[in-house]
Nucleic acid binder design. Structure first.
Length: 969
DNA sequence: TTATTCACG
DNA sequence: GACGTACGTGAATAAG
């Protein structure tokens, strides 16, 4: 029996061939799964408020397995194996076994019993035994099954279980032995012998020895000190077995490793016993009892319904007739809908929605039908909208059509620019662009109707170019970001994209743009897509957006994200949209002049470099450069990274240059100039919009996990300033005739916030008195301020903001780790608040999984409890930094949202805000307005935290003006 | 596509 | 001497 989207067959309809298949047992490692699901999925709660995120993940996994039933490789038998929460025989071997494992997170605990409920709901057997761990039961069942000639798949990614991969039954009784493999459902990857070899460098049967040598900090398996996976696998490969390694140890050449091997030999043997899987457990249930004989839908439906897993429930297809269209809204009810829409979604569990039906959408091709949709949208007081265009650049895109959604499957597409590309013999029937927009304008501008979009800033800007000032708006992408920043996991940048949101929150796979328009050379513009296809794609997007809005809006209310969403991020949407539309003037001739100048110097340098190297090569190739410097010319200091390539980055080349290697110095110059030319002087010219003559960046409001904005196409947040040559590029950013640019930046805002948040009285005092903060730090730490101590103090101050490590600091200061540690100790001694802040922040993040800014913005850290030390420490440093960087981002965002109204109130209507560079705002304004505008800009920025947060330190603002951005600094 | 390098706060 | 060495970004380039 298989479950599909369409229906659920009963066991009577079971396909005949599956009965005759070679038995294939799936053993699901349930306990391990839910820990992973917990960290990967949003913290959903069911209608009763019980956390069910991990249970949901578990349920979808079982669902997928059940769907594979008819596959040649799918299960014929299946059992879930769980850890019984108690001691195992390993504790008798080693009392400390698993001793330092942290308790499970609070909101995971109530989910454990639900895992059993879920398993029962699927009518699947669930095995757990006192004194045995799930791994041992799995090993024992795997052996029993393979001996009978069954194939076995272990559903897990636990490395201990990888010992079993490839094991085959001994083919006794004339039966062909079955084999074992593993399935990682999260990565959707099969793990067989090659995968184990790739991960550990040894065969599965040798894995136990490797694991014993390397130990495991999470399970508290001691292993041998100083030996990790790399060394362990090397040793096992060299000597074959653990015993052989230990025997050979006394004859190895003198090293720390030899000593450790000798000293910890017994620990290694103990570890070997601990990682050994017990394959001869008594089996509480017979293998035959695991036979899958169809999954009765009723208990499953009851379970899904109880926990509000509505999308799965729909897919179960319980046959209830669902109307493709809702009936017209009752006008009396519509009266209240505005309030509901503004309040955001329902307070009750979400209504049961029909599954997405691409055939339910309407293609609107007449004015009458458009009028009908507009009327209903007014009545609904909320509409999801999506514009389809010819480009990702809102400032250049041509409108192809608009889609609207008013409810589940209640969506339409209004084609407006199709067929203009010669793809059709004749243009399809569609409403004229200007007529349609004229009709839509009152709706899109109505204060009484919320416009909901996925990245709606884009649609705002496209429509703004057609004279429509869309508002008020909501954005599902930003809702998702404010709830789940940092939880995106694998996919970078796409974490809050519609496709992945639809997948996670609606269990729905959307049509992708690629599906519709193709990719690469074969890609066609959206306006060339036939209307039936275009309608399905475009209206689906609006439908999905509408549903996501309901789901996410509810969560925002439940999870305390309202403050950051309503007070910081949502108000910013139209503001940033406006900044993007303004753009900034760039002097093309100036840039082109710089380009030629740089080009000449680059050519000259290249000649010199080739001469010094004695051969021509590609200077821009780190690979070739490394080979020239370290292989051919034999300079010392070549370090190869994991790719086996020499590093030739700035620090390496500077090291060589300081030893008098001219070649390195020339390459550094070459790199600087060619970077400046390709990234800035060349690319910026191309970025000038031919229509406006200005450069329009695109800001992402979900680009940085800490809540900062990011800037792309082009990135205007990394225009050079640190070097004199680079700084010249800023001269190209200019004001229009009669205007000037005004740059206002927060001075030392992150240090000020650190002083406030960590409560450091001497630093707060220094800021209050307007002192030089690094000098004050030097005074506190060394008792005197010299150029040297101030420079060191400055380095340490920044190190603190980034989450300090003695090695990192040592590298920056050019000392060794011990000395750096001494300085850190002294810093903490002088500023104990900083240490308390770090400890408290980490404690909170370890427990909750996220950090928070002063304004309640959450950033999640999935790796904070990782057993990989490097990963974990990276997460710790990021977690220390995020509240500070994030609070700074919140503050400038608040300033931005208030800026234009404040200027307007003062009668300054010609001041335009153009750019944001994290702690700086750039304005363009008539020269005559500078005196009046400066104090307002300064006040809005300085008071941006108020009234929500009152800081113990003042926020200092520096303001400069000039004809160019360079001059304004 | 991935790795490397380097521009910014 | 296991990982890798300060946080957060985006873009260009070489090379697989």
């Amino acid at each position: 029996m298989a479950m599909s989207d369409a229906d659920t067959k009963t066991s009577a309809e079971k396909p005949a061939d599956s009965a005759n298949r070679k038995p294939h047992l799936y053993l699901v490692d349930g306990s391990a799964y839910i820990f992973r699901a917990y960290h990967r999925l949003p913290p959903l709660t069911d209608p009763e408020g019980t956390p069910v995120g991990a249970v949901y993940g578990y349920t979808t996994m079982l669902w997928k397995l059940a769907q594979d039933l008819d596959d040649a490789d799918g299960p014929t038998h299946l059992a879930v194996i769980l850890d019984k929460a108690s001691r195992s025989f390993r504790h008798d071997l080693f009392p400390e076994y698993k001793a330092n494992r942290p308790p499970p997170p609070e909101d995971l605990v109530p989910q454990f019993p639900l895992i059993r409920d879920a398993t029962r709901a699927f009518s699947l057997p669930c095995i757990e035994e006192e004194m045995l761990e799930a791994d041992d039961l799995i090993a024992s069942y795997a052996r029993a099954a393979t001996r009978k000639g069954w194939d076995v798949t272990i559903v897990s990614s636990d490395k201990d279980l990888m010992q079993l991969v490839g094991k085959c039954g001994d083919a006794d009784d004339g039966v062909d032995g079955g084999c074992v493999d593993m399935l990682d459902t999260m990565k959707n990857a099969r793990i067989d012998i090659p995968e184990v070899q790739e991960k550990f460098g040894v065969l599965p049967e040798q894995l136990g020895d490797v694991l014993a040598l390397m130990g495991d900090s999470v399970d508290n398996i001691p292993g041998v000190r100083g030996i990790g996976p790399k060394t362990a696998s090397k040793l096992i490969n060299e000597y074959g077995t653990l015993e052989a390694v230990l025997t050979a140890a006394p004859d190895m050449k003198k090293s720390k490793m030899k000593e450790n091997l000798i000293e910890h030999a017994e620990m290694a043997r103990l570890s070997r016993e601990l990682v050994q899987l017990k394959e001869d457990c008594d089996l509480p249930m017979e293998l035959e009892d695991f036979a899958l004989d169809g999954i009765p839908p009723d208990p499953l439906a009851a379970f899904l319904s109880k926990h509000g897993f509505t999308s799965l429930l729909k897919r179960l297809g319980n046959g209830a007739g669902s109307p493709a269209r809702p009936t017209e809204l009752d006008p009396a009810k519509a009266e209240n809908a505005a309030a509901d829409a503004v309040e955001g979604a329902t307070r009750q569990p979400l209504p049961e929605w029909p599954k997405i039906d691409l055939d339910a959408y309407e293609c609107v091709q007449s004015v009458e039908r458009l009028d009908a949709w507009i009327e209903r949208a007014f009545a609904a007081h909320a509409v999801a909208i999506d514009t389809e265009t010819s480009s990702l650049d809102a400032m250049r895109a041509e409108l192809a059509g608009v889609s609207l959604a008013l409810g589940p499957n209640d969506a339409c597409y209004i084609p407006l620019g199709h067929g203009s590309d010669d793809m059709f013999a004749e243009k399809p029937e569609q409403i004229a662009l200007d007529v349609a927009l004229e009709k839509l304008k009152p709706l899109l501008e109505s204060d009484a109707v919320l416009k909901v979009g996925q990245n709606i800033k884009y649609d705002i800007n496209v429509l703004a170019r057609h004279g429509i000032a869309m508002g008020p708006v909501e954005d599902t992408m930003i809702l998702s970001f404010d709830l789940d920043a940092g939880r995106g996991g694998g996919g970078i940048g796409q974490a809050h994209g519609m496709d992945s949101l639809a997948e996670t929150h609606l269990g729905h796979t959307t049509l992708t743009f690629k599906d519709i328009c193709g990719t690469g050379k074969k890609q066609i513009p959206f306006s060339a897509v036939p209307l039936d296809k275009a309608t399905r794609y475009a209206a689906e997007d609006a439908d999905v957006t509408w549903r996501l809005w309901k789901v996410l809006r509810q969560r925002v209310a439940d999870e305390g994200a309202t403050r950051i969403y309503e007070r910081v991020d949502r108000p910013l949407i139209p503001v940033v949209a406006g900044m993007e539309r303004e753009g900034i003037k760039v002097d093309r001739e100036f840039l082109s002049g710089l380009s030629s100048e740089f080009g000449g110097q680059i050519d000259a340098l290249e000649k010199q470099i080739h001469e010094m190297a004695g051969e021509p090569f590609t200077v821009g190739s780190p690979k070739q450069l490394g080979e020239i410097l370290f292989d051919k010319m034999g300079y010392k200091g070549g370090k190869k990274g994991k790719s086996g390539q020499y590093s030739t980055d700035q620090s390496v080349l500077e090291g060589l240059a300081s030893q008098g290697v001219d070649l390195a110095a020339r390459v550094l110059d070459w790199r600087q100039l060619s970077k400046l030319r390709s990234t800035y002087t060349e690319a910026l010219q191309e970025a000038i919009n031919p229509r406006t003559g200005r450069v329009h960046t695109s800001y992402s409001l979900v680009g940085a996990q800490t809540g900062r904005l990011s800037s792309t196409d082009p990135n205007l947040q990394n225009i050079p300033i640190r070097t004199e040559t680079g700084r010249r590029i800023r001269e190209a950013f200019v004001a229009e005739e009669g205007n000037v640019l005004l740059a206002a930046d927060y001075s030392q805002i992150e240090l000020r916030l650190a002083a406030h948040m960590a409560d450091v009285p001497p630093l707060k005092e220094a800021f209050a008195n307007g002192e030089d903060i690094h000098a004050r730090t030097a005074l506190e730490m060394y008792g005197e301020v010299t150029r040297d101590t101030r420079a060191q103090a400055k380095t340490i101050n920044f190190a603190i903001l980034y989450g300090i490590s003695r090695w990192g600091l040592a590298g920056r200061l050019g000392t060794d780790a011990d000395e750096a540690q001494g300085m850190i100790d002294r810093y903490f001694e002088r500023f104990p608040g900083i240490q308390r802040y770090i400890v408290a922040t980490l404690e909170k993040v370890r427990e909750c999984g996220y950090s928070e800014t002063l304004f309640g913005r959450k950033t999640h850290f999935r790796n904070i409890n990782s057993k990989n030390q490097a990963e974990r420490q990276g997460a710790e440093r990021a977690a220390i930094n995020a509240p500070i960087q994030g609070t700074s981002a919140d503050i400038i965002k608040r300033a931005m949202a208030r800026m234009m109204p404040a200027l307007r109130d003062a009668g300054l209507n010609d001041v335009r805000m153009l750019l944001q560079v994290h702690d700086e705002l750039v304005f363009e304004l008539p020269e005559g307005d500078v005196a009046a505008a400066s104090p307002i800009i300064e006040r809005v920025m300085a008071e941006a935290a108020l009234p929500s947060v009152t800081l113990d330190v003042p926020l200092g603002i520096d303001i400069g003006t000039g004809k160019s951005w360079g001059e304004a600094h």
